[in-house]
């Protein structure tokens, strides 16, 4: 199967696939940092499984990115040998883990977007995108169910957990707007029928987030100030630390295998 049927600027397409892959990769790495540190065993297992799903999805997206680019770069090559400025993930996913509640809030805000995006991508003009989305959507449905449950339990929990969840929401909400901002890359994808205009995902996301926050007794911030930059490679300092950790082995011992 080739992508030749879909007429689209290949550089933009590569960029967009890196956005999908890098969101999964960086969030997957962040979540994996919890392995062995969670408050209870069941949550440790759940976080590790979530990270595993996301890393698996990364392989699919970055694998396709390498194929579209056509320079022989594999998913591993893209993950381990790009510098921060070449990463295309939204800033939200690189935010530090903070406490357990902050990690869950970040997960929920992302999952709610991810679910809508994957739903839309199942109708992509490129069957390679549609099939990855169909696969990933089944996994992300479980991620969303779990993160929504826990945001509600902790938000509508004790005074302490409620305060922490409100603080997490206040801190992370200004990083959510970037998920819905369209630029030239997004427009090219939308015109080619490969992906939706990200702005079109906003209404459904607002509905899900609004409903869950209401049940969680949490107050949505006004959201007038929004950070941006990750999608075009302008990252916070947090990404450099993630890459130093994630890429060390391949940088020190290039091509090393198990």
């Amino acid at each position: 199967m080739t992508g030749a049927a879909v007429a689209v600027d290949q550089a933009a397409y590569f960029d967009w696939l890196c956005r999908m892959g890098d969101n999964c990769l960086i969030l997957g790495h962040r979540v994996s940092e919890w392995c062995g540190h969670s408050p209870v065993l069941e949550e440790d297992i759940a976080l590790a499984n979530t990270a595993l799903d996301l890393i698996g999805q990364t392989q699919l997206w970055l694998g396709l990115a390498g194929e579209v680019e056509g320079k022989g770069r594999t998913a591993d090559r893209l993950a381990y040998f790009r510098d921060a400025a070449q990463f295309r993930n939204v800033l939200l996913v690189e935010r530090p883990n903070g406490d357990f509640g902050t990690t869950l809030m970040r997960q929920f805000l992302f999952d709610a977007w991810h679910m809508e995006m994957l739903r839309a991508l199942q109708r992509s003009a490129d069957p390679r995108v549609a099939e990855i989305a169909a696969k990933a959507a089944k996994e992300v449905a479980y991620h969303l169910e779990r993160s929504a449950d826990l945001v509600i339990r902790l938000g509508d929990g004790t005074e302490e957990s409620h305060a922490r969840m409100q603080k997490a929401l206040d801190a992370l909400y200004p990083y959510t707007g970037e998920m819905f901002l369209a630029d030239a890359v997004d427009q090219a994808m939308a015109e080619a029928g490969i992906a939706p205009d990200p702005a079109d995902l906003r209404a459904a996301w607002d509905r899900t987030v609004g409903q869950v926050m209401a049940e969680a007794t949490l107050r949505l911030p006004d959201g007038s100030f929004q950070h941006r930059g990750g999608k075009t490679g302008r990252h916070t300092e947090a990404l450099g630390f993630i890459l130093a950790d994630m890429q060390f082995l391949q940088r020190a011992y290039p091509g090393g295998v198990w």
């Binding site: 959507a137 479980y142 969303l144 169910e145 339990r153 899900t208 409903q211 869950v212 049940e215």
Partner: peptide, 14 residues
């Protein structure tokens, strides 16, 4: 009985 990403069944489960 797979999760489907909608939140309808969640309240009942909770």
């Amino acid at each position: 009985t797979a999760a489907d990403g909608r939140l309808a069944g969640r309240i009942a489960r909770l």
